[in-house]
Nucleic acid binder design. Structure first.
Lengths: 68, 68
DNA sequence: CCGTATTATCCCATAATAGTATAATTTTAA
DNA sequence: TTAAAATTATACTATTATGGGATAATACGG
């Protein structure tokens, strides 16, 4: 998942991101390290927050702006 | 998820699809009815099988051919 | 109708998850 | 340089979600 990359690009902390997504910091840490995977609805929330496609978030494309 | 639609378009049964995805029929039924959701890796396997983007599979776009 | 194929649901054992607390690491600034 | 603050990672646990087998329900063809 291109999560850490997106978060860093936005210059926010895991805690800050977590609050935006209504979850907590350790969950974000786990997503970033790949220790755990979000459910689909969480995946979509993340993609929407960063305004990228799910395919981009999942590194299935280099184009973040696939029509949404 | 645009699963039933894709499967029907291909003219195959849940059982047939399940075998392609190395799972079983009841699991496919649940995905279609929305009773349960696949993990991300399963989601990707489904998208790949139908050769569509995850965003399309998740009904986040009308374009099934987002560059992959 | 009857048999067959297809799809949905019950039950259970197992696995995965979120959350809390806390540890470890990194960054900042004095 | 080092102490404090901020950030990130991990251990533990209770709960939830999952997959699979078995079977029920439904649709479909002859």
């Amino acid at each position: 998942m291109r999560l850490k990359q997106l978060r860093k690009a936005k210059g926010i902390s895991q805690l800050n991101l977590a609050m935006h997504l209504n979850t907590n910091q350790n969950t974000m840490s786990r997503y970033e390290t790949g220790e755990r995977e979000p459910a689909i609805n969480e995946l979509i929330k993340i993609a929407d927050f960063f305004n990228v496609s799910v395919d981009y978030l999942l590194e299935r494309t280099d184009n973040p702006n696939m029509q949404k």
